[in-house]
């Protein structure tokens, strides 16, 4: 047990994040807990608006102005054993800025908006190095930036170093984003839908790259996606989110072969799987996701759920442990699991 404890680099406990707009409060995250482990990939999967990106942004304290971490904790375990409570640091304080990029890096979804169009790609990678490794000479910075680009498999990196983002293709932009993220050897890499804007052959390249990084540097990866295919391919652990809660968390095999939450199950049934042909039955999830300002009282999935019972309407189920390392938020999970996939 102590072995696995040591591997935890980031621990999120009972995180609540609320957004305040137009005198209304949107409870975006309503008690999210998970651990990110060294050399493992955690995939957070869910539909748009379920709070996936907010989770990543709250770890790096990049939340917008009118939002607040109301409850819960985000703890980062440094290699030397010290614990840092990220949620208690000042947003733009010295400590937070030192961690951001150095220890925890993020890759955003759309590389075109994440890169600054008026600076060269090389300069933008160097900026990271200047911030976190001060005191090197100009040539050394340049050399490192070119090496980072070369590591990401960008051809002719010394020429590309001096080019602007618009001269790069989508795949190369995303690779230079990863180069930037990886330039300081972070312990944790957050990837917020890193390949949604890319073609499949290019995203396959990006996934290979991320897996190499995980193997070689023992980086912990937390990847956010809405694509179940990507989850099956990349994840070691999966957290399924729905309306601000993790409704199911567990090892990837269990989630796919023996889902314990009705939402996970419905989600798996609603997507066409390659190689199964025209005979597969797609079962759409009935209804649509509720309005975040007018949520169901109890379980958020209750109005769309086949297993709903009167109790579900009244209270949100707690985390029920199916077995070690696999929990679900459902009162009737035994029934769900007994029905098979």
């Amino acid at each position: 047990m102590s072995e696995s404890q040591n591997n935890v680099v980031l621990s999120v406990k009972d995180l609540h994040v609320y957004f305040y707009t137009n005198q209304r409060c949107n409870k975006v995250l309503r008690g999210v807990s998970f651990d990110v482990k060294r050399g493992r990939t955690l995939c957070i999967v869910g539909e748009s608006g379920c709070g996936k990106s907010v989770t990543a942004n709250s770890i790096l304290r990049l939340l917008p102005e009118l939002s607040r971490i109301e409850e819960g904790s985000i703890t980062y375990y440094k290699e030397d054993g010290t614990e840092i409570r990220l949620d208690q640091l000042e947003k733009n304080g010295k400590e937070m800025r030192a961690i951001r990029g150095q220890d925890i890096a993020i890759i955003f979804q759309d590389p075109m908006t994440a890169l600054n169009p008026v600076f060269t790609v090389g300069y933008q990678i160097e900026e990271m190095l200047r911030q976190h490794k001060p005191g090197l000479s100009k040539e050394q910075y340049k050399k490192e930036a070119i090496e980072d680009l070369a590591d990401m498999g960008i051809p002719a990196p010394d020429i590309r170093y001096g080019e602007y983002p618009h001269q790069f293709s989508g795949g190369m932009r995303q690779r230079s984003m990863i180069a930037m993220g990886m330039s300081c050897d972070p312990k944790i890499l957050l990837a917020d839908e890193p390949t949604t804007a890319l073609d499949v052959t290019i995203s396959a390249q990006i996934f290979d790259l991320m897996n190499d990084l995980k193997r070689e540097h023992d980086t912990a990866i937390m990847m956010i996606t809405h694509n179940m295919g990507v989850v099956a391919e990349m994840a070691d652990e999966v957290a399924v989110m729905y309306m601000g809660n993790i409704v199911e968390y567990g090892p990837v095999e269990d989630i796919f072969t023996n889902p314990a939450h009705p939402y996970t199950k419905a989600l798996l049934r609603s997507i066409p799987v390659l190689g199964k042909g025209k005979n597969q039955q797609l079962e759409p999830i009935r209804g649509s996701t509720p309005d975040p300002f007018n949520r169901p009282k109890g379980c958020q999935f209750c109005p769309r759920c086949d297993y709903a019972c009167p109790r579900c309407e009244e209270e949100m189920p707690g985390e029920e442990w199916v077995k070690e390392g696999h929990y679900t938020r459902c009162f009737n999970y035994r029934e769900v699991m007994a029905d098979g996939k």
Partner: peptide
């Protein structure tokens, strides 16, 4: 062939050999 092998499949049982494509379109 490469396109098919590059698609992530939502099925953990299907682990397949990927044909990597170099470069961009």
């Amino acid at each position: 062939k490469a396109l098919l092998s590059a698609i992530p499949v939502a099925d953990v049982a299907q682990k397949k050999h990927r044909i990597p494509l170099q470069g961009d379109v």
